[in-house]
Design a protein around this nucleic acid. Sequence first.
DNA 1: TAAATAGTGTCTCTTAGACAATATTAT
DNA 2: ATAATATTGTCTAAGAGACACTATTTA
Lengths: 229, 229
Amino acid sequence: MSVDVAILSLRENDLQVLLVRRGAAPFKGKWAIPGGFVKPDETLQAAAVRELEEETGVRDVYVEQLYTFGDPGRDPRGRVITVAYFALVPAHAAREPRGGDDAAEARWWSMYQLPDLAFDHAEILEYALQRLRNKLEYTAVGFQLLPAEFTLSELQTAYEIVLGEQLDKRNFRRRILEAKVIRETRKYREGVGGRPAKLYRYREERRGGCFRKRAVWQAEVNAIEYRQR
Amino acid sequence: MSVDVAILSLRENDLQVLLVRRGAAPFKGKWAIPGGFVKPDETLQAAAVRELEEETGVRDVYVEQLYTFGDPGRDPRGRVITVAYFALVPAHAAREPRGGDDAAEARWWSMYQLPDLAFDHAEILEYALQRLRNKLEYTAVGFQLLPAEFTLSELQTAYEIVLGEQLDKRNFRRRILEAKVIRETRKYREGVGGRPAKLYRYREERRGGCFRKRAVWQAEVNAIEYRQR
DNA sequence: TAAATAGTGTCTCTTAGACAATATTAT
DNA sequence: ATAATATTGTCTAAGAGACACTATTTA
């Protein structure tokens, strides 16, 4: 019984995922999402969080169960069922990747230009991207990809990178502000060459807030994840 | 590694779930959702379908993976991780429940008046109901609870039972018809005492159709389930 | 003063929701 | 005729999307 974690982050103006190169068969030399076996006394979520911290050094980030993959043929060694999670790591929060205990190679890859992947990990990442895109519109999960303070332009860029499309600046700002999920600080981002932008913070207490107004999803979608945090 | 299946059906003008009474410890005498271990060579979905058929005799119904529960304390016998599924059985399709191989008692219970449940099965059913309600609005899953031909009134009643609220008849019909997920037959439901109602059928080929127009969810939500059907 | 970035308002279309009268059948 | 059920349309409010100009800073 294993967990695999798709660790996503915004890097280099791109949505990237942390992959490790397998040092042993099967799929030796291929890239894979980090994973490992669940210890006897930890929850599945705890196992995912542990993997995440081993790879990135970060704790207390957004982690959500994605789907459980268990087709008999997915691992040539025999029946291995894996619970896939995805994690959102704020920009610049992760340390430089180093291999795990087995000194394997590890690096970030663009979600939009992936290498050949081991096992069914391509399917897992495809599903993770779909889930993230949906949740971006229907929940306030986007802030998990940014540092604690951010400008509206940075937030919009984050949305655009994940959704893969350009957004209208005025409509975006209206929707974000009407959702009341962020609040102004008194600080400004200066020295970028241009008018300084106000810095905003996510309002943790309005977690239920939702980017699209006509959404009914918060209830389910957040229910279990937050319970297990 | 086990699968548990929340088998839901419309019965007696109510949303009901099939439960079995446990004949052995732990939780002996308590009610539980049917489940069992995954065989070495079957997919998780196949195991869920097998459980479903053992309990109800039906095949080829809607089955969807719900969530994987694996807290170390959830089974007193030790670490048991279970993948929860839910299944939608059309009204009157299931045979009368009988026990499984262990001759245990089995019966339908209202989702709105459940007995004390074994393990974390109360949590699983709570989550199943949330998921079903959400999918009812954002996908064309409601038809899975009805026989192949149904009247608009029957469909509306099904929605009302699951959602737990009254719906406006004219708005409901408008939305369903605009979604183009059903088509008229030339038949009528007669002899009920009143004007005969047109019978409709679900349009399988328009599966992506969606009750709420402003929904973006079909993509993800159906992706994996349909792939595994 | 030019270049770069931030910030702001209105109009239109679509969808959701509220709401009541007529039509067809069986008894 | 009455009871039961089926069928049909309009108005209003809210949200989503299209669209262009002004403001503030640095070089």
